[in-house]
Design a protein around this nucleic acid. Structure first.
Lengths: 261, 261
DNA sequence: TTCTAAAATTTCATAGAATAAAACTCAATA
DNA sequence: TATTGAGTTTTATTCTATGAAATTTTAGAA
């Protein structure tokens, strides 16, 4: 069974084509390990080099892209933008005290993730007393198909949506080729369970449990997770924390709904 | 003497208009204290509401803008972009160990700033033993006309360029109306001095000294600063550190020049 | 609730910009 | 010096971005 190719996505009718293309370039630049040449970027984005060049120049003018020699990469202007987001957005602002309290009460690491496209992003994290042995920086992109906090974000999707997520996960190298919907579905929570669990999944030596943050729209886009070293917590220990997690998620949802903006 | 208005800027010929406009919207959103309505944004960017709406929708699709009710603000997608910048860009990567060493040797706080448009941005900072009594987060935008690290970035500008910087500083509320070039010029280093000094300037109770990082092009776009509580360091103390600062700046420039990309 | 004014959104004809082919320039390498 | 490939500029054409106007929605007042 093959997953559907990109062009089947029912994109909104052709609006702001050059802007959409610029965003594609901007996103593509974030995926490279190293700065890339014009022709490579053009090829990867499926556009001609003159067009790509003009986009890169405008982005560069704004500091969103920078260039050394003929190599392009993400520029410094993203830094102040992220600062604005972290200081002003109700999501990270509201999450901080809630994660803090979770971490204090449980001694575990508490994290808030947000779904962005076909990945999740670590928005905020408070490290608990029990060290995980690795660090995960704010803003890191992670898979949706791996790890409790990712899986709970896709637990409610229908077959088609899930297939799309998996297809993207393969393209992003998070999953091997030929990964099937069934394989992934087996990892996901059983119907009725409102939490996801993972053990040695995204990071080895680590267990994690996550719940989703109910959104006004009903579409789940945020999740809260507790993570512990595998030797320190059993599955039962973590499942026992679910009510507390659920409470934190509810509190966050309430805070977001009541935030003036 | 009045400074010239915006429209005199010799912008590159009308290329990628919708992209330039989108960037303008994106930048404008970063300047608001609170999320704003469509019409306000349209007005502040000088474009029609249908156009602004279409731009906001495309940006929102990518997560660069988010919306609650009718209010728009910067979205979460800037966070992973900033993460990529901090982890991959040679500027913050090379600066970290150099600032670390500066902070250790001097006991003071060492910072790297980058000029972005008509502001500077804190790229990296290592806090020294002597606390400054306040925190300055990575990515914060600060004025070019105030503070040693800002002033050294505009020390070499000609009259016209300086007038443009001041005009922008007034528009950004960093300087009062009617600020003259002469007033600012008096703050700047004397001709021949390759460092800038500030005392109780941007932050009270703090003295600072800064040198520029020589760039390949000759256009100065980065500066390194040492900052200390005013009671702990005299001007002479800081000036005595200039050779060390100069050395650090040179080392950074060399690292940047030799970084493969 | 209903009414009213303002804001948001959609529609649409037109102007004008984005596009890619092709020509050209430049740099690296043989 | 010739050759190759990448980057860049030019340009005719296509198609999209644009804002006025119409329409719908929202929010506040009565």
């Amino acid at each position: 069974m093959t997953v559907q190719p990109k062009e089947s996505e029912p994109r909104a009718a052709s609006t702001m084509r050059s802007l959409s293309r610029a965003i594609e370039v901007f996103e593509q630049l974030q995926r490279y390990d190293h700065p890339q040449r014009l022709n490579q970027i053009a090829k990867d984005c499926g556009m001609s080099s003159p067009t790509t060049l003009r986009i890169l120049r405008v982005l560069q003018e704004a500091g969103l892209v920078s260039q050394t020699d003929k190599n392009y990469r993400i520029g410094p202007a993203v830094l102040p933008a992220a600062r604005v987001f972290l200081e002003a957005d109700p999501l990270p602002r509201s999450a901080r005290p809630i994660l803090q309290q979770l971490a204090e009460n449980t001694g575990l690491t508490a994290s808030l993730y947000s779904r962005l496209g076909f990945e999740r992003v670590l928005i905020e994290r408070v490290v608990g007393a029990a060290s995980l042995g690795y660090e995960l920086p704010q803003g890191r992109r992670l898979p949706l198909t791996v790890g409790a906090a990712g899986k709970i974000l896709i637990a409610d999707l229908d077959e088609d949506q899930l297939a799309e997520v998996i297809s993207a996960a393969v393209a992003l190298k998070y999953e091997p080729e030929e990964t099937t919907v069934e394989e992934i579905r087996r990892r996901l929570p059983e119907p009725g369970e409102d939490y996801a669990y993972s053990e040695d999944e995204r990071a080895t030596g680590v267990v994690s449990i996550a719940v989703s943050v109910p959104a006004r729209t009903g579409a789940v886009t945020e999740s809260i997770a507790l993570t512990a070293p595998v030797h320190a917590s059993s599955r039962e220990d973590l499942v026992a924390r679910v009510p507390e997690l659920r409470h934190a998620a509810r509190r966050l949802a309430d805070l977001l709904a009541s935030s003036v903006y």
